[in-house]
Design a protein around this nucleic acid. Structure first.
Lengths: 192, 192
DNA sequence: CGGAGATTAGGACAATTGTCCTAATTCTGT
DNA sequence: ACAGAATTAGGACAATTGTCCTAATCTCCG
């Protein structure tokens, strides 16, 4: 499993940016974390925006993989949406410490008016389109888009408050509530 | 209306921190924004944490004032909760640009493991306790706490996605949805 | 008026930042 | 084995950061 230096840099940068934020992550920290010199780092990424771009592309790839896996693992659109909601439980330890990787990155880049802002937002778009497709398959028609945004918004809210209050019971309650809403919703829906 | 230099510093810092984040706001920027020298600034606030503390205290004060005003302006707990939800509409322009001032600050300080983190979280606690009281007055008993967190979480989610997607229709839809949920909820409640 | 204390200006300071350069070392293909 | 390319190390660089100092100015009370 030979991971290239470049890959190891992107791995370390991804994690550090998630844990400490983009602006609070320096070249020196990333280089130290990987165990290479800054000169070597510079050979692979010439600017801080370059490494940020690579991290975002990596997250986009991994998100696509994750969405594909959820699709493969679940026969029904309802099951797939539940898989999405369930990341709040599966990743709750990290979310309670550092928040949602997507939401916190987009929030930071938005405040910085950073050039990579749009590309980072694509992470949200990926989830939104995927959720919309599931709701469409559920037979929601024009409501699929708004419903996708609704699920996305509620998940984001849970993430934000989870990292503030560090309250696991709250997370589980909200996930249960969201899942019940989904079940009740799909039961009332024309196609089920 | 003679505002002291100190007050003008806190005002400017508050706004800059909201717009650009705490870490991306420098002493020099704040001093420039107020129109004073860095030396003068240093006379009032010796460290960056001091100015952050003052900004947080100011936000806490203003939040208490706002919650008090909502209480004075609305006769029923339902009306008060609606007033809370409605900040998403009233402040939508700012929220679409910079997100929620509370959520984004807590998220940033959390990633920095900043000493002022706990004090910033008190902003959320203020809203949470206030909302809980309204639900208690509605007769929700033990459910008042979870309901308060639920409303808080959904508002946070809307704020986050509002600044990413900059979609006013989405915000209005979610606020309508939340208000309808409130109405339906209180209608089904023992005390109404 | 005069002097003490608060306020202000302007700059010094070391540390850190992102960026860049040069010279070694390692790898690759022939 | 050897030339050329890719990779790596170690530092230089100007700019910016938060912090701190000193001296000038202002304010206000006796």
């Amino acid at each position: 499993m030979p991971s290239t230096t470049r890959e190891r840099i992107v791995d370390a940068a991804d994690q550090l940016i998630y844990e400490h934020g983009f602006e609070h992550t320096s070249f020196a920290q990333i280089a130290d974390s990987v165990g290479i010199s800054r000169g070597n780092f510079y050979h692979h990424f010439r600017t801080k925006n370059d490494i940020l771009d690579a991290v975002i592309e990596r997250r986009l790839d991994r998100t696509r993989d994750m969405l594909g896996a959820w699709k493969a693992d679940n026969d029904t659109p309802l099951g797939r949406i539940r898989a999405f909601v369930h990341i709040l439980i599966d990743n709750r330890a990290l979310i309670e410490r550092y928040g949602c990787p997507v939401g916190t990155l987009c929030a930071e880049l938005g405040k910085l008016a950073h050039p990579a802002r749009g590309r980072a937002n694509e992470l949200f778009v990926l989830f939104q389109r995927w959720l919309r497709r599931q709701f469409t398959e559920l037979g929601c028609g024009d409501e699929a888009g708004p419903l996708a945004m609704h699920v996305l918004a509620r998940s984001q809210g849970v993430s934000t408050l989870a990292s503030t209050f560090q309250d696991e019971a709250f997370v589980r309650r909200e996930v249960d509530d969201l899942e019940n809403w989904l079940l009740q919703f799909s039961a009332n829906n024309p196609v089920h």
